[in-house]
């Protein structure tokens, strides 16, 4: 069996795939559109973690469109696909709660950050705090991850970097009580934006999802409309499980938008297409590095271009 692994290692994985190069190859090989062209395009999507279901759906729609328009040459097909992908992404971008991130009339705007372990919640919060700080907003962070070792210290360092305050409690304290204290402090201190950090949790752990619900309930005691926005932090290297994550978090506490992190690697984060398609949860920010300003508002056009690069 060792030989089989060796064989594969030898033959299949010599070069990193270059999608653009591949598309050019496909088009050269089949100047006229045929099933091979569609198969190749589908594979490109799958390799970007778009997922089988959403990929076939996109390709089916593409086929229909191409037939409708009577296009026969492969050359332009990629632009049609890009257009379709962009359409899928943009169809959900106007959700009210998510738009609130950029234009809000509440005070304080309460943003709750959730996600599985290691996706980059705390880092994203540091950057998000900086983002609002630059907009001249008064920002407060809430260290409601009382579970993971040194999580609040980590948040504190980010708060220093961003130049904002943080409310924290003892490790092991009830996260809901930390969130409550934070909102109380935010109201008292005339804060514009309160960002609540929560412990990473696998979406399959029922009791941990209950804990998130409790945090939400407790926040509502002080402000019925809070948290105004709940953002799910999703690691771009995550495969199809990303959809499960989005589903479970949406079902349990409601998710208004996504922060897609680690896009500075080689992963494409294509699973957000399935998430858009099935759940309609839009991406609002992307994380592209470890510096304070490495968080950017999501741009569908840029994302689509990157997907096919």
């Amino acid at each position: 069996m060792k030989s089989m692994v060796g064989r594969l290692n030898f033959g299949l994985f010599k070069t990193r795939n270059n999608l653009v190069g591949k598309i050019v190859d496909v088009i050269k090989a089949s100047p006229d559109i045929d099933d091979d062209v569609y198969d190749e395009l589908e594979e490109i999507l799958i390799e970007a973690d778009v997922g089988v279901g959403t990929s076939s759906k996109l390709i089916e729609n593409l086929k229909k469109k191409i037939d409708e328009l009577g296009i026969r040459k492969s050359e332009n097909i990629i632009n049609f696909l890009k257009y379709a992908v962009k359409g899928l992404i943009e169809s959900n971008s106007s959700r009210e709660a998510a738009v609130r991130l950029f234009e809000f009339d509440v005070k304080p705007l309460v943003i709750m950050i959730v996600g599985v372990n290691g996706t980059g919640k705390t880092t994203s919060i540091g950057k998000l705090a900086y983002h609002y700080k630059k907009m001249n907003k008064k920002v407060l962070l809430s260290a409601a991850d009382t579970f993971r070792a040194a999580a609040s210290e980590q948040l504190e360092i980010w708060s220093d970097r961003a130049g904002v305050d943080v409310v924290r409690n003892q490790p092991g304290a009830d996260p809901a009580s930390v969130a409550y204290d934070s909102l109380q402090a935010a109201i008292k201190r005339d804060i514009d934006v309160l960002i609540v950090d929560t412990a990473g949790r696998l979406h399959t752990k029922v009791n941990l999802m209950e804990e998130l619900k409790k945090i939400k309930r407790v926040l509502k005691k002080l402000d019925e409309t809070s948290p105004h926005v709940t953002l799910l932090v999703l690691d771009a290297t995550t495969g199809q499980n990303g959809l499960n994550q989005a589903k479970q978090f949406t079902q349990s506490i409601g998710v208004d938008g996504i922060i897609l992190t680690k896009l500075d690697g080689t992963a494409k984060g294509g699973v957000i297409l399935s998430i858009n398609d099935e759940l309609g949860v839009p991406v609002k920010f992307i994380g592209i590095g470890e510096q304070l300003d490495d968080l950017q508002p999501f741009d569908a056009q840029e994302f689509v271009e990157a997907l096919f690069q």
């Binding site: 973690d49 290691g118 690691d235 290297t237 995550t238 495969g239 690697g265 080689t266 494409k268 294509g270």
Partner: peptide, 14 residues
Amino acid sequence: ADGMTGQDAVNTAK
């Protein structure tokens, strides 16, 4: 490696 990694796992590992 994160067990939830997608297609990119091959690139990283390699």
